[in-house]
Design a protein around this nucleic acid. Structure first.
Lengths: 330, 330
DNA sequence: CGGCGCACTGTTAACGCAAACATTCCCGGG
DNA sequence: CCCGGGAATGTTTGCGTTAACAGTGCGCCG
């Protein structure tokens, strides 16, 4: 900065003014300064600015298994929304859902230069196990922290209810469930809602089979379902597992949707291209990302107290070709 | 920091020593300081440290369409590798592959507090259109910047050759190509390599059909392929488009692999669960991520000049059930 | 019993920037 | 012709941290 000032024949303060686009600099001077900046390849140090201002223009984000469809789409949406507001996003991936790892990740991030923290699916960690710095704005999605911090999430409960209702409405007497991992909050919510919807319809919930969200686990778990002739309808906790299930059904020679109807959750890109195209519950990840950022920045910028806010983003049934009425039993 | 010092009855310098784990502090003093830190919820300001040290412990990453499988897996790998080295990752998503947007993204990031920059698939931007700050270490993957900066990439050429060779080896006289977008470097590389492999085998390359990487585009483009009875083997530029193609083939009533064999590229999670399970070229995204970080940090830490480095990560054919010899032509 | 050295802790200055305040200069009005 | 006032620019100071240097006090040796 001093070099630029010297080259332009002005003071450092004037350089600062030009760098920030302050209006009170004579056009000629401003041009000389800008030329000098260019010539010297100068750009202001954000570290120094951050030190001066006490703000960083960066939000932290903690997620688990980033490459998972839901996570990566949330990440993309958050990054986009943050960018639109002039913030950048610093990402930390939690190695395992163990509380220790989550705590470590949060600690690492919160000691970074961040203005706020977005926690996505902090699986088994609970608010108590985490030493969040006082006064660090936090917003959460799909984690056990819902209720302790402002939260945004898809309507898991409504989605599961819709899925089950769709299958029951087609005439299926029972709906099986291919559940997600027990340590996942959304998995638990979907499972509970499935159970409840079944109960309300007067059906008894069969034993769930469980996967870990991955397509491969859906296949493994799906083989049990495929081997059971009583299964005519399955609600899978996400589309990837649904894909594995569909493969298991193909292999077992059971027709979809003729013998077995399948509904997924998420509406990932590939769902429409599966064979048969998958009926599923669409989540609006982009909207969730935008709202997460919005809620966070309201705390950061305006110091709003949003502790009790819990926004639920609606989901939508996308009907494709993997569901149909059950074959009429003779 | 002053408050902590006061509470512990020491000087700020001693607090700093304790914070950094320097050994020359009496255990009793250190404990008092640590207690004071805890009590006051103090943690050192990274902005001030960065200002002092001139390093940030953060690397920037520019990617396009983060939620795409290849991108998100690379992001995950980079984040993990960076974390293992004590660095965090700041992410910027490029809205469109237009040079202007890429430049804007790079500009935004490079004015951030980053020690280095990872550019993934900066599609149409060329090195000239980008005003990279002098002396900012850069490493690239799959972009036109390969050759201008140290690079790491999968063996696109070898992968495409392997895919085509596999199909020719099964007895197919010709291999069609479902190509990626023209503005993508890896798409171009795969296409060129496909063309060359065909030429070497004495076959003439048919017209390519083109998608935009998405599964839906694979379906759209795939319908043309599915309608053409001369098509017996297709090399799709990625697995998502392959999935769309497979659906188009199913709809057209063509058997896979009986009538048409399909090979994909990437080996995404779902490939094994498609129907039929997809033969594909596996990319080791994790290895690419690790190497990107490694190359970048060697520049950052040791100021190594790696300009001419170009590491190629091998790929591997994963044979599943979507390929077979052509139906013998009577 | 005096001094020397070591272990520990404190003081000072600088990193780059920008707010607050100070200064300079020029213009127009009285 | 002088002075008030505003626009343009300069000077000072402090943000939180740590390296470098400067004490301080204690034990041990001669």
């Amino acid at each position: 900065m001093m070099d630029v000032a010297a080259l332009a024949g002005v003071s450092a303060q004037t350089v600062s003014r030009v760098a920030r686009g302050e209006a009170t600099v004579r056009p000629g001077t401003a041009r000389r300064v800008r030329d000098a900046m260019e010539q010297l390849g100068y750009s202001p140090s954000r570290a120094a600015r951050a030190l001066r201002y006490g703000q960083f223009g960066t939000v932290g984000m903690v997620a688990h298994r980033l490459a998972r469809t839901g996570e990566s789409r949330t990440v993309e949406a958050v990054v986009e929304a943050a960018q639109a507001e002039g913030y950048t996003v610093t990402l930390v991936d939690v190695a395992s859902p163990e509380p220790d790892d989550v705590s470590a990740a949060v600690a690492r991030l919160s000691h970074q230069d961040i203005d706020g923290l977005i926690i996505v699916r902090a699986e088994t960690a609970t608010p108590d196990t985490l030493a969040l710095p006082a006064h660090l704005p936090v917003v959460v999605s799909d984690s056990r922290f819902v209720g302790h911090h402002p939260a945004v999430g898809a309507d898991q409960t409504g989605g599961a209810r819709t899925a089950v209702g769709h299958l029951l409405g087609l005439g299926h007497a029972c709906v099986h469930h291919l559940a997600g991992p027990e340590d996942s909050t959304p998995a638990r919510q979907r499972e509970e809602s499935w159970r409840k919807a079944l109960a309300e319809a007067g059906a008894t919930a069969p034993e769930v089979v469980r996967g870990d969200w991955s397509a491969a686990s859906g296949y493994d778990a799906g083989r049990a379902l495929a081997a059971d002739p009583r299964v005519t309808a399955v609600f899978a906790a996400n589309d990837e597992m649904a894909a594995g299930l569909i493969r298991a059904l193909h292999e077992a020679g059971r027709a979809i949707p003729g013998d077995v109807s399948v509904v997924g959750f998420d509406d990932i890109d590939l769902s429409a291209q599966l064979w048969p195209p998958l009926t599923t519950i669409e989540q609006d990840f982009a909207e969730i990302g935008r709202r997460l950022v919005n809620l966070l920045l309201r705390q950061v910028r305006d110091a709003e107290d949003l502790a009790d806010t819990h926004e639920v983003v609606p989901v939508r049934l996308v009907e494709r070709s993997s569901t149909a009425p059950p074959r009429s039993t003779p």
